[in-house]
Write a protein that binds this DNA or RNA. Structure first.
Lengths: 132, 132
DNA sequence: TATTGTTATACTCTATAACTATA
DNA sequence: TATAGTTATAGAGTATAACAATA
């Protein structure tokens, strides 16, 4: 049961990175971009929580995305310990492409899954996540 | 949906490694041991498929488990390119402990999940895994 | 004092490619 | 020729601990 969960996750990440191969992104970079496409200017802490990326990993991910001019770090005037991560003009279409690929994968993979099955899936995922 | 899947997987691995902290095992080592507890003497290929561990990773995992005398590699007389991975006398209780921890986690985490929900979960996991 | 984010360190995971031994 | 497993290499992920700047 748990092994199947891990295999499904691994397979999903694999399938996405194949679809996005020309973009040359790692799984973490893909996650961050998918998140940014739907969320306006989070700080690093919020982004880490949303994507499940620990701080030390996130620093490296953001460094690489910044080096490629997909994002910028903008100092937060309201709390100058932190910064807001924003997509650049050239990063925006990349993030959209990633997000659309996520959606398309979900749509086709779950074409034959009923709403009831999907609800069961979500209940189990939530239960796993809340387990101490 | 897919982000939640990844977070659940991450959280599950985390929860298991906390419960097994004294054993000082990585996630891959835990997976391999859990598998060996229920499977008699697979070869490296079978073990890699079952746990989702690629060959280059598996070599390192088996090296470490062998160094700790939890497993041995026994040349397969029927196909001398490969070997059978077997638990040693001291590895057996460790593998059992890992497997029991898996089961206990599942039992408590899913205590309030219905059979129908679980069936839905399994259908979705299978669909994700079969997606091209 | 506590929090945000970075750095340093050390180890693990992973893809790729080249390799040996065996089939 | 094909397959099982290893090695080398290089990059990425991660835990831990220490740190600077700010709250």
């Amino acid at each position: 049961m748990l092994l199947a969960l891990q295999r499904a996750t691994h397979h999903t990440l694999q399938a996405l990175s194949v679809r996005l191969a020309e973009l040359q992104l790692t799984a973490s970079e893909i996650n961050v971009l998918a998140n940014l496409a739907d969320r306006p200017a989070p700080n690093a802490r919020e982004l880490g929580l949303a994507t499940g990326t620990p701080p030390t990993t996130l620093t490296g991910v953001l460094d690489r995305l910044e080096r490629r001019h997909y994002i910028t770090r903008k100092l937060d005037a309201a709390d100058r310990r932190s910064f807001r991560v924003t997509l650049t003009r050239s990063g925006r279409p990349v993030a959209k492409r990633v997000r659309d690929t996520f959606r398309e994968f979900e749509r086709t993979a779950l074409a034959d899954v009923s709403d009831q099955q999907l609800a069961g899936y979500q209940a189990v995922i939530a239960a796993l996540q809340e387990a101490p």
